[in-house]
Amino acid sequence: MRAFIRNHEFWLAVVVVLMIGATAFRSPGFASPEKLAGIFNDSSMLIILALGQMVVILTRSIDLSMASNLALSGMIVALINAAYPEIPVPALMLLATFCGLCLGAFNGTMIWWIGIPSIVVTLGTLTIYRGFIFLIAGGKWVNADRFSEEFVQYTRYEFLGLPALSWYAIIIVIGFFILMTRTSLGRSIYAVGVNPSAALYTGINIGRTQFVAFCISGALSGFCGYLWVSRYVIGSVEVAKGYELTIVAACVIGGISIAGGVGTVAGAVLGALFLGVMSNALPVIGVSPFWQMAISGAAIILAVIINASSQQKSKRLILKQENAAS
């Protein structure tokens, strides 16, 4: 029970619930099931992307190119759909995921084979990928009337009261929970982050694990590329611009340590939900949307401070126990 109370995810969940409660106090409709489902649907893409970023951060890397990857993959399927509306949408979803996977694999190759720090590679590909959107689309937008009806509906079909977009997120969350806690790949991702030298001696290929992590974050970005274009019914160079830092913010708020090795699926999901609830709650309680940026900035700083202090405490505790044992 004590461990549970000290748990970062537990407190984050409490904060999210309190935020919903406080907002509902001001505007009673806010906590209705339909509204909450709407908030979850709004946060779905951020949840998926935060999980991808989490895997990368756990291996002591960072992927700043996710938003550009998303926008490029989204633009590719948007253009294909506008030109050949007869191609079935599931095939386009696979294609977007595959595009994202290739872009992520390029990042991973640079990091694994050549050994360039991930922040430099993804800083470069952040601008390169976004530049390519301009090139392939000739600087034009793909507007709402050029998409096929099916393309737009594949994030909107309802099942058990939730739109398809939410279900994609739920399935991916479950998949990640299994991946991170029940497979050897998940264990090796944590191992590489916690202690690379120890991981190496246990036979884990560090570079390859990081490569796989970047492939995962790339594939998820690509998949979200389709989701984004379908949900907002627009393909343009500006899609998700600056979103890479929101994704990192969701991870940081979720208690994923930027130093690697520390973080859980629940944390990433709650971090994304925190930002999602906040962006929905602020207009409801009459806060100007222009305040949102400063508030989320303050939330990131607070989250980092709280994480750091709680991690230091637990470290000291281990030392004390060791002393007692010896």
Partner: peptide
């Protein structure tokens, strides 16, 4: 991470 936070804080 701190400067990612202050980045949105200052511009915010």
């Amino acid at each position: 991470v701190i400067t990612i936070g202050t980045m949105s804080f200052f511009r915010g």
